[in-house]
Design a protein around this nucleic acid. Sequence first.
DNA 1: AATGCAATTTAGGCACACCTAAATTCTGGG
DNA 2: CCCAGAATTTAGGTGTGCCTAAATTGCATT
Lengths: 229, 229
Amino acid sequence: MAKKSTTRANSESTDDYLKAILTIGGPQEDRVTGNALAEHLQVRPASITGMLQKLSGQETPLVEYEKHRGARLTPAGKRRALEVIRHHRLIELFLHDILDYPWDEVHAEAERLEHFISERMEERIAAKLGDPLIDPHGHGIPRKDGSLPERREVCLSELAAGNTGVVTSVSDRRPDVLRELKNLGIVPRAHLTVTERRAGSRPMRVRIGPASQDIPLTVRLSSAIYVSQ
Amino acid sequence: MAKKSTTRANSESTDDYLKAILTIGGPQEDRVTGNALAEHLQVRPASITGMLQKLSGQETPLVEYEKHRGARLTPAGKRRALEVIRHHRLIELFLHDILDYPWDEVHAEAERLEHFISERMEERIAAKLGDPLIDPHGHGIPRKDGSLPERREVCLSELAAGNTGVVTSVSDRRPDVLRELKNLGIVPRAHLTVTERRAGSRPMRVRIGPASQDIPLTVRLSSAIYVSQ
DNA sequence: AATGCAATTTAGGCACACCTAAATTCTGGG
DNA sequence: CCCAGAATTTAGGTGTGCCTAAATTGCATT
């Protein structure tokens, strides 16, 4: 006999799907295509279909889904997604600040642990860190009530020459990128000026803080950096 | 196609089986019966058989197993079991000392997390705690090399009246027991004297430290306490 | 309206770790 | 030595989440 009545869902996979939908859909909560999900989750499109059917066909559906029309989070789904992201970012900060983890390693560890920590641990970590609102890469940590600290930021790769800004956050998915950024001094709160910019995928050049020399930034790097002006 | 060649095994379940075999078999490494495992793991005996077959039939077997003759860890299995126990106890101490977890809650959390922390995290936690050798309940923390700090302890329920000892460890499996023990002042390093002892399952009586009054201890409690003389 | 390609869904399978029910094997007492 | 009852194993099944291969659907163009 099954443990619960209908097809319940609370697994790691479920969490990952919800996070992905929130991330890809962005704050405007656009509908997300199966393809984009498959790409993001590194899973075959066929698997996406099955999972979306499951997540949308539960007692309390976590996603809204109609054949061929993509998926979107329900309020319950969004709540869970934000909770997992809260876990993730609290853990990242915790690993970095309390356990002295290197900057580029916190993401992978948090990615695993986010699914398994209890409410109590979330609470204890948050308390230890003083209810922080920003993680080591500059991303907002959702509050317990699900609200996300607002940030006004632009991707550096969209900034024209001459502009100056403060780094607000950097993408944390690739450790190698993070290491490079750190070496260049590009971390949240660093000041930065775009000194040169050409069309296409040519490297742009930027000056970091009061440093006298400017440095080239590949697209790979510049698209991982967000700044506010 | 399968991810790995043969039926690999590294799951939570595997860890739990290995820990159980080590725990039940004791330091003498006795062969462990399927029944005992089923009891300990709260799983049907039939499930035990399947898992033991799997664990013993791998490229590098983790258990040694012959039909109807019980199971025993191979060196590789023992190594893994001790690693998981190391994780568990480091996490318990960490939760207690760094995150101010209550005594009776660390076990459950550690039981989940022990499977998911990386080598790096183990290393960082150990460093933060100063490479400790004892967890909050008084159990030895296996060293990185798998060696287990030796302890010479007797179960309190086996102590005759008149004996005096120092509490070395307490069983951590039932939170309610832990809470009672704490209330009574029975924690590792507490001094304790058996003041009265009768046959059977009658409560024994003990005096804690320099306290003038002695208190009754149910078998449930006394069998959860270990002392050295 | 037709067609051709991309996106998506269905169908059928697999590994894992568990379950129940039905053998089987082992063991101790007579 | 036999036999009952206990322990263990086999057989067959479940749910989860993934896979491949083979439909199907939708859409942009012509």
